[in-house]
Design a binder for these strands. Sequence first.
RNA 1: GGCCUGGUAGUUCAGUUGGUUAGAACGCUGCCCUGUCACGGCAGAGGUCGAGAGUUCGAGUCUCUUCCAGGUCGCCA
Length: 591
Amino acid sequence: MADSMKGLKRTHYCGDVTEAGQEVVVGGFVDRIRNKGGVIFIVLRDRTGIVQLLFNDKSNPEIFEKASSCHSEYVLMAKGKVVERESKNYKIKTGLVEIFVDDLRILAKAQTPPFEIVSDSNVNEELRLKYRFLDLRREPLQRNIIMRHEIAKVTREYFYENGFIEIETPMMMKSTPEGARDYLIPSRVHQGKFYALPQSPQIYKQLLMIAGYDRYIQLARCFRDEDLRADRQPEFTQIDLEMSFVDAEDIQECVEGFVQRVFKEIMNVDIPTPLPRLTFADAMNRYGSDKPDTRFGFEIQNISETVKDIDFVVFRNALDDGGSVRAINVKNGAGTYTRKEIDKLIEHAKGIGAKGLAYIRWADEPNCSFKKFLKDGELENICNAVNAEKGDLVLICADKDKTVLSTLGAIRLICGKRLDVIPEDKYNFLWITEMPFFEYDDENNTWVAAHHPFTMPMEECIEYLDTDPENVRAKAWDLVLNGTELSSGSMRITDFELQQRMFEALGMTDEEIQAKFGFLVDAYRYAAPPHGGMGIGLDRLAMIMCKADSLRDVTAFPKVQNASELMSECPSPVDDESLAVLGIKVDVKEK
RNA sequence: GGCCUGGUAGUUCAGUUGGUUAGAACGCUGCCCUGUCACGGCAGAGGUCGAGAGUUCGAGUCUCUUCCAGGUCGCCA
């Protein structure tokens, strides 16, 4: 039977016990035990830090006996006097003192944990996720989770101070099949009908503008039934906001103020504003990405002109098919990469869709993979075009523009990481503007909306809506931080007739429109102020600010790649009775 | 759905060309130790080598299938 804490009341967190002379009561988990025979040291841990408890067999044999029966992760409460240590530990905050215990309670005994609860654990993540409640006891995870809380707190303060009202929108809403797959919730009362969990509160926040709430904010949970990535969970939190009587610049200015505030307050990092801006087209051409990491160089250069006369079939074909030949010059000694390392890059490029990569490896002399097709001076011309010098590796891709850019963009990132040229303490925010309005759907050979269908086109593009979809740009923008898409925003269409034209351009019939968003279209008939907004990924922001590699490190109970949760083992089957009530028959597809 | 990486004591890993009883460190258990702080010393327990099949006199090691986890492409209006 465990002890009770009767008669004891915690006076201090472990990490706060720094002054000798006082009587304190602390509670926590046993972090470590050092039993020297006649004296025992127990290191007690709570969310604030650790403190050393001291036990001596001469002064109190009974308590000493109890202390020697303790093991890792037991939950203890201890009362005692804070004294100066005989030999001090200057490495930790509480290292100058210790608690000479005169009352010890073992409040709960612990089984031996499946892995050690230590800061620098490199235990298999699968196991840690199965015992997430133990993993969450570890200091790095506690620090991340608490930091995320601080970020959320500053977020609310900033937006509240700027006149935003926090309004909760429904978690059970109408399913809209566009975009990401919805998580569906069956209705018991309306058998055969379903709610959906929100992919975002998009529609509701627009309705709130129509309703006159003017500035709305919500730390909104969002759900998308799509495959996971290190920076993508099926369930995530957005700092969701919408503003009335504003244009794009006003919203961006407001968000700039926010990132400035949160970085200053949480990390004491100054973010200069206004943040740099890059058009989508420029981002693609220079970095091969709509979310470029601008903390390092190796930018993409178009060398189509330089190589147009070279008699190399790979370049020839690409140019004849209306594509291009582009290159990145990887510096910082990549010219000494081995053949094997380069082959690995080429393999990766093939995985992205390129047919291969040509290269110039300049260790001592420029060594070119397509040397035999070159005439005198042509190699020099290419090297000059990309400013190559000794020690560089020039990687060249020839194909359709889209393939060339995405390939070189991805290879650029890999090389940057491998050569360790990305400064860790730099925070490069970047607005990506003038996003394309339509995207070509290769599967169905149609143009589809790149954003939700209420996104405003840029005024000067409206005339091309029906004739030249490729050149229509949206009043939509992304906020990128160090190569991660943090946030996405746009102005919304408030003009009823323009909205009708948009739906037509997207090939939607009146019936479809009515069935899917009839209520929203109707709402706009009752007049809406000009408005727009953004959704900022709180998880991703926290991930970057915590210097974590995965959202799992800033999410208390994350899901794994197949969207299940290893601790509770959800999703899980339900019994037939529960299904019958919902009118659902399960027909599982064989693999 | 495609591609890549990984799976050996509780944990992290090693394991040679296929060859005797599968090793180390940490953790765990017991004993010793009055100033440790990643305490130390002595002793000990602990293995379905992810699972299944195949090749072989013999498989942790080779082949195939499969499961699990991670990364990535597709996907994410």
